[in-house]
Amino acid sequence: MGDTVRIGKAKRKKVLSEADRTRRSKHIDLIVTLIPVALMAVYYYGIRVLILAACAIIFSVLSDYLCLRLCGDRKWQSYDFSSVISPLILVLILPASIPYWLAVVGVLIATFVAKYPFGGYGKNIFNPAAVAFAVLALGWPDKVLSYPQPFDNLGVSFTVGGSLTNGVAYRLQLGGAPAIPVMDRLLGNFAGPMGATCILVLMACGLYLLVRRTISWQVVTGTLGSAAAMAFLFPRVSVSRVDSVVFELIAGVLVFGAVFMASDPVTSPKTGWGKALYGVLLGVLTMLFRYFGKMEITFVFALLLCNAVAPKCDEYMALLIQAAKRAARRLAKKPLAPKTQGE
């Protein structure tokens, strides 16, 4: 926690500790990178995206504040921007046609169900945006898993008229390859979650966050690498293996989730090897849920399961490494075979 310093007769100013400063800087990095993703969503779907984001953030901040007051002695930490980041992440993995009230319901679920019963920011076990999306997807699949086409005129009314379509993930589930030109696949010019389709922007943001060490390279590469490997080895559709990898990566919220959700330092493992195992597990589970499950968006469900086993990833990898080191030491100390007589 920070110390307080008195600046003359002025109010005491809280000085943040090194750890808190790092946390704040990471939060700011995340917000900075979410902005271009949100702007791409605005480009494709219009001003409605901004209104959704604003509603979500306002209700998130209010509900966070209410929970803090209910908890009594817990103060709002100045490094904590989670009440801005979580709702923004949630909104960007939803379709642009989502009713405003449903986005608000999601935000309230994230705060009241996923965050504060476990102790609030820094103590939650599950990623709040993932919990909220999972509940919305199961409860309102017609509203959450149907998408407008980019550049459709959605307007700003409470509900969106016009036709909605299924995403890439749904078509892959049925065994069909979507007909999307290559550039559109990278730029996100196809129906899908409003912030999760523009792969190029997501990769650029991911690179920035990796360089800034805000997210963990082990988690990101583990997740995307294992998912890509499974898509290559076991394609769901009758296309080339490379196309299978591309479609599986652009489907659902896999890339967005790997960059913005999986590396959440609160809910992911703490050690490097633990993060690597976690990333691989997440990618594998996401693909297994796609192969055998009924939901088209599976990343968030796999993420919830991985959040639960995150502490065990650190523990088991530590044991594995210890065992490997012991084995290596034994091999190094093993004496040479004794010489037989006559040699």
Partner: peptide
């Protein structure tokens, strides 16, 4: 770490609920 009102069984129920949610994804 858990608020007093939720400490123990209540938080455990919510935890099981979220795990159940993840399985329903399958």
């Amino acid at each position: 770490r858990v608020p007093k009102a939720f400490r123990g069984f209540p938080a455990m129920l919510i935890y099981i609920g979220i795990l159940s949610l993840s399985f329903y994804g399958l």
